[in-house]
Amino acid sequence: MVEVRNLSLEMKQKTLLDDLSFTLERGRIYALLGENGSGKTTLIRTLSSFYSEYKGSVMFDGKELRAAGRKERASFHAVLPQYLPQLRMHVSDFLSMYPEASRYLNALGLSELMKEKMNTLSGGERQMVFLSLVLAQDSILYSFDEPEASLDANYRNKMENVIKSLKEEGKTVLVSLHDISKAVEIADSFLVLQHGRLVFSGSCEDFLEKCIYKSLFGLERGDFRDCNGKFHIAFF
């Protein structure tokens, strides 16, 4: 369980996160929504010690993030960032630095990527290689920062399967998304940020029933069934 109490972050006299308090339970997927610049990436970074100058408290299973040692911090939070570094090396050499990761790449059905060079991979392939590294970290919380931005349908399915399987393993998953329909499809609960403040925290049902999508994003809801009879919710 992750407990965040009165979390604030200021940098260069600008408030990036403003008094956030929320709890993330085990075995649930949380969608992190908000416009560009609302603080989604900053929140994920703060929960991973990237920004250490925060005020308030961040507890992972009752242990304070700030007081934890290196190995403990690694067991708290694994992050797949939106922007990944370009590397000039073979995937096999890259993953040899983190031996557990190649097992996860095989589990994703992408062992053929081992022969490729990192800088010749497509954006989606590179994301999958880094995903295998993140999965090898074995943490309490897994955060994915706009994970589907550069993925085609095939890799999007793989990513969603990974997120669902982490939930089944009892992990906590935080996914930053722009696509509200996708958030409704995969998430159990929602956190909505606006200018660094938490303006909604609640279940997916609450988000829909209280028409939060309308009050916060100005969107209308449309329900439909696809040609296979599967029910979908769209926002426009």
């Binding site: 991973s48 990237f50 250490s52 190995k71 690694a74 694994a78 992050v79 570094p85 630095m97 880094f130």
Partner: peptide, 17 residues
């Protein structure tokens, strides 16, 4: 040095500074 190659966000989440 290997960890730095991963970028600062992943490096931080792995507990490194």
């Amino acid at each position: 040095m290997n960890i730095l190659k991963l970028g600062d966000e992943i490096a931080s989440s792995m507990g490194y500074c």
